[in-house]
């Protein structure tokens, strides 16, 4: 029994080591057949669009050829002119300001929320209470952005929104109109995100907390450490690595504010602050047909994201964290 098993094992391991490609293709024919759809998918839907990025360096127009591919081949290259136009254009600084004010505010106010909630949930000893509250706070993550926007609208609109009326009773005429006051656009977006994702965001931290040895707490308690000291010296160090990883990922998203949410909450009253790179790419590129300009904006966004991730990761390593990779 054991003999046959080891024989099978060694033959399975030997093949690729000694084997040529021809051998591998013969002995594991099905693996290569199975991988075809996935690879074809990646080539068509991930890598072909990357080739499409040449549009950012062209004066692309779909009328330069009979088909889109033909047009791509025949559109004239203009070097970095499109980028120059994008960076010096009237929109760039406004878009940058709007995008950064949303993402930096989100880094300050939204990012710590799941950590705080996870720490609080971790203090709950009553298991059914913990389970029920977790079940409830996870729900909004699975709800679509359209529904979140609808709920917001139904609660905050000035004609029959309940929360607006409540605020009106307290503040009178000063009641904030979240849906159209441009000064309240960032708080509105943040509020939606906090409501939607805080609960679900705790999962990853709770998973890290579950790995903490309970005896550490006991030992600390014996040594006279109170709740705060335990949190500071045991709980926080346990989730520090997770916090750093989440922070790196978040920093990489600094120019990604998402299309859906902003698009749904945008209206003519708040457009001055709600135009971000993502909505700009959609309106200029897909609605307005300015393909080169919006592709350049998209490329700029992806590159900044990548540089930020690499930079944040380096920084994390400098401070002795394991980082993302």
């Amino acid at each position: 029994m054991t003999k046959t098993k080891t024989a099978a094992h060694s033959s399975a391991r030997k093949k690729p080591v000694n084997g040529t490609w021809k051998h591998a293709l013969q002995s594991h024919k099905w693996l290569y057949i199975l991988i075809i759809p996935g690879v074809a998918y990646m080539i068509v839907f991930n890598f072909l669009p990357m080739l499409g990025l040449v549009m950012a360096f062209q004066d692309f127009s779909p009328y330069n050829g009979d088909t889109a591919i033909d047009a791509l081949i025949h559109s004239p290259f203009v070097g970095l002119d499109v980028f120059k136009k994008f960076f010096t254009g009237p929109d760039f600084w406004r878009l940058l300001k709007n995008t950064l004010s949303i993402s930096i505010a989100s880094l300050i106010f939204y990012f710590p929320m799941p950590i705080i909630l996870a720490l609080l949930l971790n203090e709950i000893r009553c298991s059914w209470y913990k389970r029920v509250s977790q079940t409830l706070v996870y729900i909004p993550h699975f709800i679509s952005m359209v529904i979140v926007a609808s709920l917001t609208y139904q609660l905050f609109n000035t004609s029959d929104g309940y929360i607006y009326h409540l605020l009106q009773q307290v503040l009178g005429k000063n009641a904030p109109d979240f849906l159209s006051d441009s000064g309240l656009f960032v708080p509105l977006i943040l509020g939606q995100n906090i409501w939607k994702e805080t609960g679900y965001g705790t999962i990853i931290f709770l998973a890290a907390l579950a790995g903490v040895d309970v005896e550490l707490y006991e030992a600390a308690r014996v040594d006279g450490a109170g709740r705060w000291k335990q949190m500071w010296h045991i709980t926080l160090p346990a989730i520090k690595a997770t916090i750093v990883i989440m922070l790196i990922l978040k920093v990489g998203q600094i120019l990604n504010t998402g299309y859906e949410q902003i698009y749904l909450m945008q209206n003519s009253m708040n457009r001055t602050v709600s135009d971000v790179f993502d909505t700009y790419i959609y309106t200029k590129g897909i609605e307005g047909g300015q393909y080169s300009l919006s592709t350049a904006a998209g490329l700029f966004k992806s590159l900044v994201g990548m540089i930020m991730v690499i930079g944040a990761n380096k920084l994390a390593k400098l401070f002795g964290e394991s980082g993302l990779y």
Binding site: N46, G52, P62, I281, T295, M306
Partner: peptide, 20 residues
């Protein structure tokens, strides 16, 4: 992994899906 780190973005994908 490359597909996770980098993408062509919205506009090239749109042209691919809608026009090609």
């Amino acid at each position: 992994i490359v597909t996770m780190l980098f993408s062509g973005g919205m506009v090239p994908s749109y042209i691919l899906i809608a026009q090609i």
